[in-house]
Design a protein around this nucleic acid. Sequence first.
RNA 1: UCCUCGGUAGCUCAAUGGCAGAGCGGGUGGCUGUUAACCACUAGGUUGCAAGUUCAAAUCUUGCCCGGGGAGCCA
Length: 460
Amino acid sequence: MNRNKIASLLASINPIDFVCISGWVRTRRDAKTFSFMEINDGSCRSNIQVIADDTLKNYEAVKKLSTGSAVTVFGVLRESPGKGQRWEIEASAIEIHGLAPDSFPLQKKRHSDEFLREICHLRPRTNKYGAVFRIRSALSSAVHQFFKDHGFFYIHTPILTGSDCEGAGQLFRVTSMDMENLPKISGETDYQFDFFKKPAFLTVSGQLEAEMLALALGDVYTFGPTFRAENSNTSRHMAEFWMVEPEMAFCDLDQNMAHAESFIRYLVNRALTHCADDLELFSAYVDKTLLTTLNKIASSNFIRLTYTEAIDILKNSNKIFQYDIDWGSDLQTEHERYLCEDHFNGPLIIYNYPASIKPFYMRVNDDEKTVGAMDVIVPRIGEIIGGSRREDRFDVLSERMAEAGLKQDDYWWYLESRRYGSVPHSGYGLGFDRLIMLITGITNIRDVIPFPRTPGNIEF
RNA sequence: UCCUCGGUAGCUCAAUGGCAGAGCGGGUGGCUGUUAACCACUAGGUUGCAAGUUCAAAUCUUGCCCGGGGAGCCA
């Protein structure tokens, strides 16, 4: 018989004569002639209560079942006479798969996130982490649904790259050469012996390749892993993270910002409507203001202001910042937080940044001082989206590349897209892990992905 | 990488130079349609590692390792 998922049994309207569940024992309590067990199979937050009485053939073994043990239970789904749950299963047979000895580190009581991070292989079995990873799955589906509804095509851009795409951060090197015995030519590593016959890296963004597809299919997006070899030790950076990158042809900066805003609103709404039960855990135990925050994001327009306006507000704020504010310098975390959390108290989009602090591919505005860049800032997380209108003029783009010290030979194909039928186009990157932080209220990015990769940490 | 706080039982923490403790978890027994069950008893320690100061160090000093928070780099 196929097993029933606990989620569907708990949603049942009527009793069911014969059911079968498989899962892990969360807790067990003994009564005089029977035992209460709570089983969780990961299909939902709730456990189901099982009544195992002493007529079971293996009752002595059942009485020894400890937290973490795996079982299959056959029995009747009936209304529970006890308080606290509507349904329970009266077991007719219990099959024991694997016991969890008393060294099983998860207790019924709450554990610290720091401790659970040391046992990433077991933490999905807790209520909180089970909920995070169900939400992560639901929102991954929501990403695809949103783009499907808007006529986008899902494309796959390479993970391995031969060029330092946008000069964004340190790259991980990829090689098939023997690191202990590198072939040398006049003192330098001879890449002729490497797999690609030239240096190779893990991608820091699929944007440049995504642009090529946008200039053919119209509206496209990528959703995949991204790698940065930065020595970042913060609660919002990882060496391996997931990014959603839409790229849209015939799209200006205003349309780009409107798109980013509706995308975030859609995802927040999806979480509110599709993950209500799991979200309740986070609003109860992680962040009491979570639902207020999410409802506000879902219902109100994002504030839009230019970089220049942002600088003016900061200068007139009479607040003392650790870093000085001057037109031309990048906004620091403290500045973004002040604007987002104190001054406007809500999500905001800052656009038209100085060209000098932004990458070569962003389109230079008519003032020739700023570029069509935009960052979406949300409370508590900071930057969740970074995007821009792309420079579509061949001459300007080559000039900007030269200024950035990039070799045009390495980007010949990128430049050719501006030579043949170039069009206005825009796109952005959304940090998917940061989105999960926003939606769950979790404050450390290491806790929204099953197995986080950070400097000095690649266990599991 | 920098600043800052911390590391004591399986977990969460106390012990501020003088006998290393509690709650939870584990084990044993009892009780009960229970539900973070309850009651009793019980086991459990290289106080992160190394050196130093002292009659005496979990406690003070130095170095290292690991973790949290903040910052930079960024999504």
